[in-house]
Amino acid sequence: MSDDQTLTKVAECLYRNKHGTYFALLKVRGKQIRRSLKTDDSALARRRLAEFRTKAHGLTGDARTMTFNQLAKRWLAFIKPDLRPSSHRRLSGIVETVKPFFAGLPVRSIGQPQIEKWKIKRGGAVSARSFNYEREVLRRLFEYARGNLRIILDNPALDIKKRKVGKAELVIPTKEQFRKLVETLRAEPRVKIAADFVEFLGYSGLRLTEATQVRWRDVNFDSELLLVTGGEQGTKNHEVRTIPLFPPLRRLLERLAESQPKRTDSHRLFPLDSAKTAIGTACKKVGLPHFGHHAMRHFFCSNAIEAGCDFKVIAGWLGHKDGGVLVAQTYGHLRNEHSTAMAKRMTFDVLSLA
Score class of each variant (00 low, 15 high):
Cys13His: 15
Arg35Lys: 15
Phe52Lys: 02
Leu14Trp: 05
Ala24Trp: 03
Asp40Ile: 11
Lys31Ser: 05
Gly30Ile: 11
Ala24Met: 08
Arg29Phe: 09
Tyr15Gln: 09
Phe52Gly: 00
Ala43Asn: 09
His19Asp: 15
Ala11Glu: 13
Asp40Arg: 15
Asn17Tyr: 06
Cys13Val: 05
His19Val: 11
Arg29Tyr: 11
Arg29Ala: 15
Ala50Gln: 10
Ala45Val: 01
Arg35Glu: 12
Lys18Met: 01
Gln32Asp: 07
Ala50Asn: 07
Gly20Asn: 12
Lys38Leu: 08
His19Phe: 14
Tyr15Gly: 04
Thr21Met: 14
Phe52Ser: 05
Leu14Asp: 04
Leu37Gly: 03
Val10Leu: 14
Asp40Lys: 15
Leu26Phe: 09
Arg46Ala: 07
Gly20Met: 12
Tyr22Asp: 00
Arg16Ile: 15
Arg35Pro: 02
Thr21Asp: 11
Phe52Arg: 04
Ala11Gly: 11
Leu49His: 05
Tyr15Thr: 05
Arg34Gly: 06
Arg16Ala: 05
Leu49Arg: 00
Ala43Gly: 07
Gly20Tyr: 11
Leu25Gln: 13
Ala50Glu: 12
Cys13Trp: 07
Arg46Asp: 01
Glu51Ser: 08
Glu51Asn: 09
Leu49Val: 03
Lys38Val: 02
Leu37Ser: 03
Thr39Asp: 10
Tyr15Met: 07
Arg48His: 04
Lys9Asn: 12
Tyr15Ser: 06
Tyr15Lys: 07
Ala50Met: 06
Leu44Ile: 13
Ala50Cys: 03
Asp40Leu: 09
Lys27Asp: 12
Ser42His: 13
Ala24Cys: 11
His19Cys: 09
Thr39Glu: 08
Phe52Pro: 02
Arg46Ser: 04
Leu25Tyr: 10
Ala45Ser: 04
Ala24Lys: 03
Leu37Val: 08
Leu44Asp: 13
Leu44Met: 13
Arg47Gly: 00
Gln32Lys: 11
Lys18Ser: 09
Arg35Ser: 06
Leu14Pro: 04
Asn17Arg: 10
Lys38Ile: 03
Lys38His: 12
Ala43Cys: 03
Tyr22Ala: 00
Ala11Lys: 10
Glu51Thr: 05
Arg16Ser: 02
Lys31Val: 06
Leu49Gly: 01
Thr21Ser: 13
Ser36Ala: 13
Ala50Trp: 00
Leu44Lys: 14
Gly30Trp: 08
Tyr22Val: 00
Gly20Ala: 12
Asp41Trp: 02
Asn17Pro: 01
Phe52Cys: 04
Arg47Leu: 09
Asp40Tyr: 08
Arg46Asn: 03
Asp41Ile: 09
Leu49Trp: 01
Thr21Ile: 15
Arg48Asp: 02
Val10Lys: 14
Arg29Gln: 15
Val10Gly: 08
Cys13Ile: 00
Arg46Met: 07
Lys18Gly: 02
Thr21Val: 15
Leu37Thr: 02
Ala43Tyr: 08
Phe23Pro: 00
Asp41Gln: 12
Lys38Pro: 00
Tyr15Pro: 00
Gln32Thr: 13
Arg46Phe: 01
Thr21Trp: 11
Glu51Arg: 05
Leu49Ser: 03
Lys27Gln: 14
Arg47Tyr: 03
Gly20His: 11
Ala11His: 07
Glu51His: 05
Lys38Gly: 04
Ser36Glu: 02
Lys9Pro: 10
Glu12Ser: 13
Asp41Leu: 07
Leu37Pro: 02
Arg47Asp: 09
Ser36Asn: 05
Arg29Pro: 01
Asp41Arg: 07
